[in-house]
Every structure is written in C-alpha cells, then in structure tokens.
C-alpha cells in the first residue's frame, strides 16, 4: 500500500511539474512571435466569421485579415493592441460589426463556455493581460485547464524555424476561403429568434476599449457590416444603428450589408463564400477610401 501511494504521489507531482514547465516554456516561446507586417499592409481587419470569410487579403492587398470565427471583442482587443504596437504603418482598423454578435447569448457561447475557453484562451493567451484574464476569475479551474492547453504544435513549429515564427503560426485569425454555396439550405433551416435579447456588456466594454485604443494610437477605427443576404430581414439593422449611436457615436461606420451579390456568392445567410469574398475584396480595394471620403469627408 505504502509503495503504491508513494509511487502515485511522486508520479502525480512529476506530471504536474512537467505540465507547468511545458506550459511556461510554450508561453515564453509564443509570446516571442513577430507581429511585424510588410510595409504595404496598413489596414487591419478583425472580428468574427463574417469578416473572416468576406475579406480576401490577397486581393485587398493593403489589408491584413486576422478575423476569426466566434471571436469576441475580448480577444480582438488583444490582437489589435499587439499589431498596433509592432506596426507603425497601420493607420486603419476595420472591425466587423453585426448585431447578432452583440447580444448577451454571445457571452456564454463565445467567452465562458468551456469549449470556447478551451479553444480561444490558448491561442490568445500571449496577447492577453491580467485585466483580460480577470474576466475568468469565477472559472479558475477551467482557466487553468485552458492555459495548460497551449498550442504545442505551434511551439514545435516555432522551434523548427529557430524561434523566428510570426503571428501566422499562432492561428489567431486569417482569411478563410469558404467553398460552400448553401444559402438556400440555410434559409430553409433558419430558426426565428424570438423575443428581445439583452446586450452583452463584455462585447460593449471591449468594443469601447478598442475605440479608445485606436484613438490613443492614432489609428482610424471603422466599424463595418459585411455583406448579408437580405439585411432588412436578417440583419437587425435598426437595432445595430441604435446600438452604435448609443455606445460608439464617434466611430466611423461603413454599412456594406446590402452590397449587391449573386446568391452563388454566399456561403449562407451571413457569410460570403470565396466567390463573394473575391468580388467584395476587389470592391474594398478599389473603393473603400472613396466611400469613406464620401460619407465622412476627407480621410
């Protein structure tokens, strides 16, 4: 019995120490990733899946798309902060802005649900500060588990590259080429959202923090609604405008929800597929500055 208990105890302690060392080493490694962008990239595109699928930064070459599906503004804030710190040439930050991502059900689904924590925290840990982590103070055990789940595959890649890896290896976001063409299926299955939904205070606070950050760094913040299928039906545009006026009255806003696209350009109601992304990205490349100038005067 004594032998068994000693062996189990020693084994447990050794594993705990090894796990802590591994996580510490991985964190150190990941926090050394370079976020430096090429000189021609001066626009940062961030947000969740709508932006992730809509902006092809190979076409819209002056932009870099680091949006990621199911990404709350909590993580977006850390991404923007890091990019602005390392890239003085960044003068514009485009933040995806849609009403369905501002409601309180997002808090559980995107921030506090264990699967969300387990996936997002390891990817963004090196970009988060104490204040960001304090949001999870009521879920300490899950936080520890998430921290231990750092992306070790990326660390291996870092090591193989002699520690000279960039943000791309961190998997914090990129343009996602969506192949699907399933608009009709999505329409057929869409469930009506019933009743009024409350607003997420976390999304609101972090969106306001993003606005403050951009202002302090001299970057122009543009809230952008990406193209949607029938925005008047599915976009909740009136609520979105009311929200913007209430919480972000000074931010510039570009509404492309009604951007004309064929149905074959849509992956589903909310997302563009690669055909739609190509058309929309070309448009942004050629006309975004003009559109902003037309709406807000000189840039």
């Amino acid at each position: 019995m004594k032998k068994f208990l000693i062996r189990v105890g020693v084994f447990g302690c050794a594993v705990a120490i090894a796990a802590a060392c591994l996580a510490g080493g991985a964190y150190w490694m990941l926090s050394r990733a370079s976020f430096k962008l090429p000189a021609g990239k001066h626009i940062l595109v961030v947000g969740a899946s709508r932006a992730e699928c809509a902006v092809d930064d190979r076409i819209f070459a002056s932009a870099v798309n680091v949006a990621q599906s199911a990404c709350p503004y909590l993580y977006t804030y850390g991404v923007i902060r890091k990019f602005l710190e390392e890239n003085e040439q960044l003068d514009t930050v485009i933040v995806s802005f849609h009403y369905s991502t501002l409601t309180e059900n997002i808090d559980e689904r995107w921030i506090f649900r264990e699967s969300a924590m387990n996936y997002k925290i390891p990817l963004h840990l090196s970009l988060m500060d104490k204040e960001d982590l304090s949001l999870f103070s009521h879920r300490k055990l899950m936080l520890i588990k998430s921290v231990l789940n750092l992306p070790y595959r990326d660390v291996v890649r870092f090591i193989l590259r002699g520690g000279k890896a960039s943000y791309r290896e961190l998997n914090i976001g990129r343009y996602l080429r969506l192949e699907r063409d399933k608009l009709q299926e999505a329409i057929a299955r869409r469930e009506e959202t019933s009743g009024e939904r409350g607003l997420s205070i976390f999304q609101r606070d972090y969106l306001q923090k993003i606005a403050g950050l951009c202002k302090s760094r001299g970057a122009e913040l543009i809230l952008m609604t990406m193209p949607l299928y029938k925005p008047e039906v599915y976009g909740e545009m009136e609520k979105l405008n009311a929200y913007r006026e209430a919480y972000l009255p000074d931010a510039k806003y570009m509404d492309y929800s009604a951007f004309p696209l064929a149905d074959s350009c849509r992956g589903d109601i909310q997302h563009l597929n690669y055909k739609g992304a190509a058309v929309f990205s070309e448009y942004l490349r050629d006309h975004l500055s003009r559109d902003i100038a037309l709406k807000y005067g000189t840039r």
Partner: peptide, 16 residues
C-alpha cells in the same frame, strides 16, 4: 511513457 500520456491529458484535453 505513462508520464507522457498523463501530460497529454493535462495539456491536450478537449472541453469536458
């Protein structure tokens, strides 16, 4: 090997 399996559990588990 047992330690590596335990480490895998500690560092690579999905959501419960």
């Amino acid at each position: 090997i047992y330690g590596a399996i335990a480490l895998f559990i500690a560092t690579s588990s999905g959501a419960s």
